[in-house]
Design a protein around this nucleic acid. Structure first.
Lengths: 202, 202
DNA sequence: CCTTGACGAGACGATACCGTTCCGTCTCGT
DNA sequence: ACGAGACGGAACGGTATCGTCTCGTCAAGG
């Protein structure tokens, strides 16, 4: 599925004469900027090359197609998000998670790219696969850890539904921040946190 | 902005020789099917005409551009959703609202089109305007009515935040049903209802 | 110093749309 | 019966993108 070469994305200390990292980086940046500018459906390799100041051949030397490039690059980025640390209380964990997620969603590139990718997943199985891994699995793991710790502390009943918990941790924030474009407001995240905890405890 | 003719979408009892309704309907259906098939970004007028079994001229006789056609047709559809009736209790109102919305989100065309349009709104102001009206305003009015009735009944404190309430009524359901593609499950809507009410009361 | 190979640039044929403009046909209301 | 006008179909010139391929340049290693 993802068929890009490892040498440029993971060149190691010295892998011999190699596709130049600076070019790979320029293409990567150009890709995300272009993705934010026109969306996946209208993204063209020529535009990416133009923006990167490179030739198209430099792109096709690295990835066999637009879909493979997208899957590879999106996969790389999403992997980064670190686990939320244990703040000692459910409220602290939730607020930290919401704050981090809200900040990510407000990034100018993310706020334009993410909804587009989520929609594109319906048309392109390769994208759906990457997002399913990154958003589905990774996110479920993080939220699951938070809820599990809360259950251990006795802050939540054991009956708490992890799947629905994920919907509450992600849904209202995504809807408000990414779709409704609600202005940044720490107070909103505080209230959101209290409401989510109330929902989780129900 | 929306410049389609009134004669065919609202021909009245007898408006003289008119663009044929059957063609308008064929084009409308083809538009939504094509939208579901390839998304807004890649939607082509030729494909719509092909699918409708019409000539492109028949489309351009009705709308001046793809954007105007989209705004007009999407606006027409979204208008339909009726107000939720008063069931007498907050729980009944919320469950009815969630059930209706969930059903709508599961419609094969809606589930593919809506996320795409929400994403496209970031690139096309005309779409953003229509969605802002239909989803933003209309939805805020509906949910606002439900919450206001609940406050009058004493089921919710007066301090309830309508804006955040909207995020909770829409977010988890949209995330679970449209993004996570959770299977249809009445029990899930029941639990969702209880959790939303707990959140609203927090 | 000379070979190697990635580089930017861009031409290439193929394909797809755009929005417009013609056909010749058919269905109306008059 | 007639004329207006919408119809499906097809073609127009123009633009954009695809993925491939060929240039001449340039930097590094042997």
């Amino acid at each position: 599925m993802i068929t890009s070469m490892e040498r440029s994305t993971d060149p190691g200390p010295r892998g011999g004469p190699v596709l130049q990292d600076s070019v790979t980086e320029a293409i990567t940046n150009a890709f995300f900027e272009e993705l934010a500018a026109v969306g996946y459906g209208r993204l063209s390799m020529e535009a990416v090359a133009r923006r990167a100041g490179s030739g198209k051949a430099a792109i096709y030397r690295r990835w066999p197609s637009k879909e493979a490039m997208t899957a590879d690059l999106v996969g790389q980025v999403s992997v980064r998000a670190a686990d939320t640390l244990d703040t000692g209380t459910l409220r602290g964990d939730v607020l930290a998670f919401l704050t981090a997620t809200d900040e990510a969603l407000r990034h100018p590139l993310v706020s334009r790219i993410l909804p587009d990718l989520l929609a594109s997943a319906a048309y392109h199985p390769a994208i759906a696969a990457v997002l399913g891994d990154e958003i589905g699995t990774a996110r479920r793991r993080k939220v699951g850890a938070i809820l599990r710790r809360a259950v251990e502390r006795g802050e939540l009943p054991e009956s708490a539904d992890i799947e629905l918990g994920l919907d509450f941790m992600a849904g209202p924030l995504y809807w408000g921040t990414a779709i409704r474009s609600a202005p940044a407001d720490p107070g909103r995240l505080e209230r959101l946190t209290d409401m989510i905890i109330a929902a989780l405890a129900a």
